[in-house]
């Protein structure tokens, strides 16, 4: 058996807010093989974003272990795991190119080398002509493309996307979804993608993990057996609808 790209073993996360302890994640087990595109869905506050920040090493779980390629995750390992946030969160004083190069700068990669790598990433995400723009000169979709470039620039094996298109309009969301699929098909990365949008989850993923409301537990693990490449017309197919219905049933039951 091949080793999982990401392993989540009996992970529990408690939060204490104003003296009250809540269980955000309760005994989560999840194995993600390399190259799989996994969508995480569930009602608001089910802890799916929390799970992502645990995989990113931004916090440590209350209990359980997380592994990346078999090695424990005890802090951010940006060379292995790239994180893309809901808001593009670009550094507003850096150009698009410098933003993409930022993770390399933190690692001490020489300027010429890192800008060269960043330029290649901007080409990949279709922003080759906007390298010298500042974030406030870019549209929401373009900013998110820069942010994806920043996530990819160190060529990490695992890409985490935390509701990356939630703040974008429907058309931009569709276009960027296809873009992520194209990049994924080309690079073969393992992807964990948190979303509220069920169509987006079914359209993009190989597999959909459905969470319950607090305490967050995995209530379903849905393989998406639609052929690739995914096309727009699939979204109106019966199979697509059936998958969405299956997920929706869980979320409707959970979200009171």
């Amino acid at each position: 058996m091949t080793q999982s790209a990401v392993s989540v073993r009996a992970v529990t996360q408690h939060f204490t807010v104003e003296g009250q302890s809540t269980v955000a994640l309760d005994a989560i087990d999840l194995e993600i093989p390399p190259g799989q595109f996994v969508a995480l869905v569930g009602p608001s506050g089910c802890g799916k974003s929390t799970l992502l920040s645990l995989v990113a090493g931004l916090r440590l779980p209350t209990g359980g272990t997380l592994l990346c390629n078999g090695e424990p995750i005890v802090g951010p390992v940006p060379q292995r795991i790239g994180m893309i946030f809901q808001e593009a969160n670009l550094l507003p004083w850096l150009t698009a190119l410098e933003n993409v190069a930022f993770p390399l700068k933190l690692r001490g990669v020489p300027k010429r080398e890192r800008l060269e790598a960043a330029r290649a990433m901007l080409e990949l995400t279709g922003l080759g002509n906007f390298a010298d723009r500042l974030p406030h000169q870019l549209s929401g979709g373009m900013k998110q493309r820069v942010s994806i470039g920043r996530g990819l620039v160190q060529d990490p094996g695992v890409l985490l996307l935390d509701e990356p298109f939630a703040a974008l309009d429907e058309q931009t969301r569709m276009v960027l979804g296809d873009e992520v699929l194209r990049i994924w098909a080309r690079t073969g990365k393992t992807v964990m993608f948190v979303t509220h949008n069920l169509s987006e989850a079914v359209y993009l993923a190989d597999r959909i993990i459905v969470f319950s409301a607090r305490p967050g537990r995995i209530v379903d693990d849905v393989p998406v057996d639609l052929p690739r490449p995914r096309t727009f017309s699939m979204m109106s197919s019966e199979r697509f609808g059936a998958l969405k219905d299956r997920i929706w049933a869980h979320i409707r039951d959970a979200d009171h």
Partner: peptide, 8 residues
């Protein structure tokens, strides 16, 4: 958070 996620 972004900076920390990228290892700062």
């Amino acid at each position: 958070t972004v900076a920390r996620a990228y290892g700062a």
